[in-house]
Amino acid sequence: MKRSAEDAFGTGVFQPTGAAMLDPKAYFAQWQAAAQQAATIPQLSPEEDTEQDAVLHQVSSLSAVRCAAHVKEKGQNFTSLVAIEALCTMATKSSFKLREDLFRQPHVKALCKKIQELLSQPPPALDLRDLSRAAEALAKFPEEARGNAAMSMGAIANSMSQLNTSDWSADTASKLLWSLARCGDGEEIRKNKHVVSHVVKELVRDKGRRIQELSYDGLVHLLWAVAKARIQKRGVDRQTVHTQESDNFLFQLTSRRICDEIDRIPVTLLADVVQIHHEIGIKNERLFRAICPKIVSKQKELREDQMAKCIKAYTRFMIPLKEQAQGFRTMAVVQKGDFLRPSDKPKPQGKKTYEKPQALYPDTQLHAK
């Protein structure tokens, strides 16, 4: 948790120009200014650092309801990291319906307001990873909890596009873009299309080596954010899709990874991948055929709306969504109790005899007319 002058250099505070490098006095003056700025950042003692780690572990181990009660009791004393951890706990360990109920509580609303302020004016002690976790947790709550997304999440996304590519991880970028896409109906991420293009070009660079850094959740979130950014709506019912060359390359690389690691990916994420390809209009028959058996065999794990969207996507691209054919079978197994094909050969019963009809009267009866 401690920061020094060397840490300040890594964050871009100390940036000597070419002219200053030639002047030792100017170089020393810039170093002294960076050291003074780093000294103003509050530092935690080892005891305080250990205590904060214990509090973070305690908050992360609580359930969503117990965490909300803990926020009500001690939320006014939370540091920035503890507040972010508490919001992440409530966001990840609850359904959307429960998050709506939690947000009605005043202390949870106050916590969301505090996270909004942290995102709008992030303190120096928070890095981009912590801010991305805060943005993701806030985006999982109802729309009212996000406040002004342009001032919070949009500002962080713009700052990420100005940093060096080595200063942010792939999952961090995915969380920020997904959080931005969750605001409204995608208006905010369409306003920041340049940030999406910057992230996509970085991830597909060098034959997509950074695609492997993404977790499965991060991979699906990134694809969904890119799809939201490229969909242009015209009117109420009309929309068009404007993809870039790097977007198509990104979808090719991710589909290759999904096909290679499909046994380890949850079926809910695979259903989301199918839906995203349907929204952006990219037909990948190899990917769809690889996902098909898992969706059919584990369709009970999907919600009804998820399964309906999968059926709609397969129907649009005219790819069959059915079980794999078993092929021609040359053997038939006869089991006991099969009356159409008895198991035992019928025993011979000798010559068959038939009963002859008997007349009711010995002669034909005559009736008077």
Results as ranks from 00 to 15, higher is better:
7 D>C: 12
8 A>F: 11
8 A>T: 06
9 F>N: 09
15 Q>T: 15
16 P>Q: 10
16 P>C: 04
21 M>H: 03
23 D>I: 15
24 P>K: 00
24 P>R: 01
24 P>T: 02
30 Q>A: 05
30 Q>F: 05
32 Q>Y: 01
33 A>Q: 06
35 A>C: 11
38 A>K: 07
40 T>Y: 15
40 T>H: 10
44 L>Y: 10
45 S>V: 08
47 E>L: 07
49 D>V: 13
49 D>C: 08
49 D>W: 04
49 D>S: 14
52 Q>D: 14
60 S>R: 10
66 R>H: 05
69 A>M: 04
72 K>V: 07
76 Q>L: 06
77 N>Y: 15
77 N>P: 02
78 F>L: 03
80 S>M: 03
81 L>T: 14
85 E>W: 13
96 F>K: 15
99 R>P: 04
100 E>T: 02
107 H>A: 06
108 V>F: 05
111 L>I: 00
115 I>D: 00
118 L>E: 03
119 L>Q: 05
123 P>W: 01
124 P>L: 08
126 L>E: 01
128 L>C: 14
128 L>K: 09
132 S>I: 01
133 R>S: 09
141 F>A: 04
150 A>W: 12
151 M>R: 15
152 S>R: 11
155 A>E: 12
157 A>P: 04
160 M>E: 01
163 L>C: 11
166 S>Q: 08
173 A>H: 02
183 C>V: 10
184 G>Y: 04
185 D>C: 12
187 E>H: 02
192 N>G: 00
193 K>Q: 12
203 L>N: 01
211 I>R: 06
213 E>S: 04
217 D>I: 10
218 G>I: 08
218 G>N: 07
220 V>E: 06
222 L>C: 13
223 L>S: 07
224 W>F: 14
230 R>H: 06
230 R>F: 09
236 V>H: 15
237 D>Q: 14
238 R>M: 11
240 T>D: 05
243 T>M: 15
244 Q>I: 02
245 E>Y: 03
249 F>I: 10
251 F>S: 12
253 L>H: 00
259 C>W: 00
267 V>E: 02
271 A>N: 10
272 D>Q: 13
272 D>L: 12
280 I>Q: 14
282 I>W: 09
286 R>E: 13
287 L>E: 02
296 V>I: 15
296 V>K: 07
305 D>W: 04
307 M>N: 04
310 C>K: 08
312 K>H: 12
315 T>Q: 10
315 T>N: 12
316 R>G: 06
318 M>S: 15
320 P>I: 02
327 G>I: 02
330 T>N: 06
334 V>M: 01
337 G>D: 06
345 K>F: 07
354 Y>K: 03
356 K>I: 09
357 P>I: 13
358 Q>H: 11
364 T>R: 11
364 T>F: 03
